[in-house]
Amino acid sequence: MSSDQPTPGDAQSTQEARIGSGADDRFNSKLREAFGSTPFILTKFDKFMNWVRGSSMFMLQFGIACCSIEMIHTYAIKHDLDRFGAGVPRASPRQADVIIIPGTIVSKFAPRMKRVYDQMPEPKFVVSMGSCTISGGPFQEGYNVIKGAEEVIPVDIHVPGCPPRPEALIYGVAKLQERIANGESSPVTVKPYELEQFGDLEQDELVDKLASEIDEEDLVMRYNWADAP
């Protein structure tokens, strides 16, 4: 839109009504027009904040397994997640709002993932991508596999598939945006594995056995496989 070509009547008139004639129409926008000629919008502050939150999400650049390849495709050319206001991958968790968990979580990685999640500032949201993050997926029976992301951190949106197509992930992210805009969040449904100090674990045979190898202050995660879903 160039300034010497006036746009059709309506747009010009609401703009004129708001900011007077002669102002550059570059400052106008479709969205602004949609609100009509009034210079004020009346909304609840929290509602507005939630809308803003959902419309500009910084994703954590976080790859685990196969799903991360489809996740990269979702960010990259053709699918371009950025179109939906969610395409700025941040390398540091301290700058991210959303973590997509794209892959199988195994015993050695879960404490690290928990730590990365803890480092993200509130409010933070989690999209779990793929069957592995729901139940362990095809590796559910593995001796080393955590049976789903919710065993470690709370999850807002599950995107099923092995792996989900980029379209599915985009749908999941759009649904998350919708929920955020509506101020909804998911309850934590399982008691997750926690990072705790070794000294705080309940004494049993295993703890006694490892006492010589692990310091009291070391952070550990204890997996009770028999209780896993």
């Binding site: 050695k108 879960a110 404490p111 730590r115 990072l195 190898e213 952070l219 550990v220 997996y223 496989w225």
Partner: peptide
């Protein structure tokens, strides 16, 4: 492949995969 505090060798015959395990996050 497995964490250094792992107990047992999972592809051996008498491994019981329901036994609990403790994994560290060393500072």
């Amino acid at each position: 492949l497995l964490p250094e505090t792992w107990q047992g060798h999972p592809l051996s015959r008498d491994y019981n995969q329901d036994k609990p395990q403790i994994v560290t996050l060393r500072e």
